[in-house]
Design a protein around this nucleic acid. Structure first.
Length: 309
DNA sequence: AATTGTTTCAACCGCGGCCCC
DNA sequence: AGGGGCCGCGGTTGAAACAAT
């Protein structure tokens, strides 16, 4: 015996809603509320099933719906909450005022999943590259680059995301090529603009700013990179020169994005260390990210009413 | 300008769980 | 206690919009 249909479907309309139908639904709910979705269509005169009315109201007509593209903060929040909760879209939506579960689900599938995949791919590639370069054990200290060179990071993956949180603990006095211009194309964020980041003169400038510098991984992947007598490497394609130690200094800034996020929260006294000297390292294993975010949220008081898992 | 491929997102569908009788 | 009705959730679909050729 099959499940009874949610409503009598004979003669009921399906598909996109017309402005007239929207107005009828809005007027009715404003006047009488929506205590009984099943009875609502008959009472309002709409030729729709109750489910369809509910969906239209919840996802589109509700007055407190926030319109427009998701902000970077909202996207990061979704990623973090999704890591905690999985596909529990309604629970995630409950923490994003004005956003619906359907909208969040769509954004996840169209933008954030791609973004996260690319982010994780980059992260693992960076670690592999760092290990590989560490194995070289090159420790030169000078940096000379063509000041007019421009490195395109179209496919570079160190996106401008809060996962790469700034942290002053990494301050050093090393210098970097002046006024290099980097252009990042953020092609997978909903309605996100293409951003152009002026490369700062020194690492201190980087650390004082909002952004991490963008390291061009392709420098090392290019077959045109040749070692020089002084230990530097010259890329014939981009006419740029760099050193392993200089590169490593930046790479180390991305050691573990969760840890960096945690360090920032510690530094700003949003959370307090649980154990260990400064809390950093407790969550060193990537698989611990669930515990990490749970602790962050609990300590920050951001999710006091976590649902039962 | 036309065609084809891709992306986006509103809406549908079926299921699980809660509530009431 | 259990059966039926309803609500809400998450997966999926398909049309429209947009991009590429």
């Amino acid at each position: 015996m099959g499940r009874a249909p949610c409503c009598d479907k004979v003669g009921l309309k399906k598909g996109p809603w017309t402005p007239e139908e929207d107005q009828i639904l809005i007027n009715f709910i404003q006047k009488y509320g929506h205590s009984n979705w099943r009875a609502l269509p008959k009472q309002s005169g709409l030729l729709r099933c109750g489910k369809s009315c509910r969906l239209r109201w919840i996802n589109y007509l509700r007055p407190d719906i926030k319109r427009g593209n998701f902000t970077r903060e909202e996207e990061d929040t979704i990623i973090q909450l999704h890591e905690m909760m999985g596909n529990r879209w309604s629970a995630i939506a409950a923490r994003l005022p004005g956003r619906t579960d359907n909208e969040i689900k769509n954004v996840w599938h169209t933008h954030l999943k791609k973004r996260l995949n690319q982010y994780q791919t980059t992260k693992s590639e960076t670690k592999v590259a760092r290990k590989s370069r560490n194995a070289k054990n090159v420790t030169t200290t000078t940096t000379t680059t063509d000041s007019n060179s421009t490195i395109s990071s179209e496919n570079n993956s160190q996106e401008n995301t809060s996962f790469g949180t700034n942290d002053n603990n990494h301050a050093t006095t090393s210098s970097i090529s002046p006024q290099q211009s980097f252009t990042t194309s953020d092609d997978f964020s909903s309605g996100t603009e293409v951003s152009s980041v002026e490369f700062p003169n020194t690492i201190n400038d980087v650390l004082d700013g909002e952004e991490f510098p963008i390291i061009d991984e392709t420098f090392w992947e290019s077959e045109d990179v040749i070692p020089m007598d002084n230990g530097d490497y010259y890329n014939m394609t981009s006419s740029t020169t760099t050193t392993t130690s200089d590169y490593e200094e930046f790479s180390n800034m991305f050691i573990d994005d969760n840890e960096l996020q945690f360090e920032t929260l510690l530094r700003d006294e949003i959370i307090t260390p649980i154990n260990g000297e400064n809390g950093v390292g407790i969550y060193g294993d990537d698989d611990d990210s669930m515990d990490f975010w749970l602790d962050v949220f609990v300590q920050a008081g951001g999710a006091p009413e976590l649902p039962d898992f």
